[in-house]
């Protein structure tokens, strides 16, 4: 049967056609496609890996951020507490410093007042004694005409003074 006997012309053309087809695809078709497909697969793999890493990093970053925030909160509280402590301390210190200063000033004032008083007292005494002497002179001048009386009075006065002091 002719159906089962291969025709030589057809075999020839089939060989030629297949050779041409194979050459064209081998040269310009398959290498480009194979490379393109594997490149794309690599790219997708890389993309997936990158995304996974990014997600991991993101999760990590969130954790980190939470940690930082908690840290900051704690630090803030610490600082507030510290500041509070410092504040009371400063106030305390200031108060004590002011007290000592005031005391010092008061002491100095007391001393100077005492001095002033003593000076004034001295001056007053001096003046009083000079007035007293003047008065006594005048009085004595009037009364003490004679020398005996003078002497007697002076002595009695001096005794009196001695008794007073």
């Amino acid at each position: 049967m002719e159906l089962f006997t291969p025709d030589s012309g057809l075999i020839f053309w089939m060989f030629v056609s297949f050779a041409v087809l194979f050459f064209v695809l081998w040269k310009w078709g398959w290498p480009v496609i194979m490379k393109g497909v594997s490149d794309r697969a690599d790219l997708i793999d890389k993309g997936v890996e990158y995304a996974q890493n990014a997600k991991q990093q993101l999760d990590h970053a969130r954790e980190e951020a939470d940690k930082y925030i908690a840290d900051a909160r704690r630090q803030q509280a610490d600082m507030l507490r510290e500041a509070d402590k410092m504040k009371t301390q400063i106030i305390e210190e200031a108060r004590s410093a002011a007290q000592t200063e005031a005391k010092k000033v008061m002491d100095a004032a007391k001393v100077s007042i005492e001095q002033e008083r003593k000076q004034a007292e001295q001056q007053f005494r001096n003046e009083v004694s000079s007035f007293a002497l003047d008065i006594a002179q005048k009085v004595v001048r009037n009364q003490m005409k004679d020398e005996k009386a003078q002497e007697k009075l002076v002595n009695s006065l001096l005794d009196e003074m001695e008794k007073q002091n």
Partner: peptide, 30 residues
């Protein structure tokens, strides 16, 4: 020798062109 371009040979040529077109289309895309 009989290497006529018969119906089948012509069909083979058409098939070759179609395959080349289809595959080079993908290659061009890449």
């Amino acid at each position: 020798l009989d290497i006529s371009i018969t119906k089948n040979v012509c069909g083979i040529f058409i098939a070759v062109l179609l395959v080349i077109w289809a595959i080079l289309d993908v290659a061009r895309w890449h």
